[in-house]
């Protein structure tokens, strides 16, 4: 299954985008959770505040479907 993960900021460095400057195409087996996908990519889940897909908040137990575009929201603080 192919999904697309997107992010900016510090997470972008971790994500290593390959589709455009924010997006990485990820191939996974089965229907893993986001937490498991992050683990596979070597991204500490503590660096993801939440995920955002289809205009909704998704927690790390979310299981993306084929072709999903999921934004990873990094935690930041203080404007």
């Amino acid at each position: 299954m192919v999904i697309y993960l997107r992010s900016g900021g510090k997470l972008r460095d971790r994500l290593k985008p390959d589709v455009d400057i924010y997006t990485r195409k990820v191939e996974v087996e089965g229907t893993p959770t986001l937490k498991e996908i992050l683990e596979q990519l070597g991204i500490p889940d503590g660096l993801v505040a939440f995920a955002f897909a289809d205009g909704k908040v998704r927690r790390l137990n979310y299981r993306p479907a084929e072709g999903d575009v999921v934004t990873l929201q990094p935690p930041v603080s203080g404007g």
Binding site: R6, G8, G9, Y22, T23, F52, G55, T71
Partner: peptide
């Protein structure tokens, strides 16, 4: 930017 929409929301 991908992180803009969640911030806006």
């Amino acid at each position: 930017h991908p992180n803009m929409a969640p911030w806006q929301k």
